[in-house]
Amino acid sequence: MYKALTAILAVVIAAPVWAQMTPLGTWNSIDDKTGQPKAEIQIVDKDGALSGRVVKSLQPSSEPLCTECTDDRKNQPKIGMEIIRGGKQAEGGDVWEGGKILDPENGKEYRATFTPIEGGKELQVRGFIGPFFRTQVWKRVP
């Protein structure tokens, strides 16, 4: 009886830690030029894969629509736009791969990986085009 209660208590206490070591949650993307928070991105599990939407802009934008997008997001509002599509946890790892991320400022879509770091307080977002990549570190919104 006590062993079962102890096991249940351990799971309840550890659950928030497990939740922190995933890309799921709300993140502040960081502007490459200024180092300041640019937008809030909410990442959820959608049918077993990642889906991330811009939920709030933290900087003034000259263009509220994604005029540079070339797919179904063309001329759609950046706020509410799904910028992360796909991405599943690599077997035995702390990285989510196989997804894509869109930069709504230039309309380019990149292959992407997502890796929680710093105990889940930060998210390393790496976008690839061919052999080239760009890495950003996003901050979890408390």
Rank of each mutant, 00 (worst) to 15 (best):
M1L: 13
Y2K: 14
L5T: 11
T6Q: 11
A7W: 10
L9F: 12
V11H: 05
I13D: 03
I13H: 03
A14S: 07
A15P: 00
P16S: 08
Q20V: 00
T22E: 05
P23Y: 06
G25S: 06
T26R: 03
W27C: 05
S29K: 02
D31A: 11
T34Q: 10
T34M: 08
G35V: 09
Q36I: 08
P37L: 09
E40C: 03
I41R: 02
V44C: 07
D45A: 11
D47F: 09
A49G: 08
R53W: 11
R53F: 07
V55I: 15
S57A: 15
P60T: 15
S62R: 12
C69D: 03
C69N: 05
T70S: 09
T70M: 09
D71R: 00
N75L: 12
N75R: 08
Q76V: 06
Q76T: 14
K78T: 08
K78N: 07
I79Q: 08
G80A: 09
M81G: 03
G87C: 04
A90F: 01
G93K: 15
G93N: 12
D94F: 14
E97K: 14
E97A: 15
D103Y: 01
P104I: 02
P104R: 04
E105N: 14
A112F: 05
A112E: 01
A112I: 04
T113A: 01
T113C: 02
P116E: 05
E118I: 03
G119I: 05
G119R: 04
K121Q: 12
K121G: 06
V125W: 01
F128Y: 15
F128M: 14
F128S: 12
G130Y: 08
F133N: 15
P142N: 12
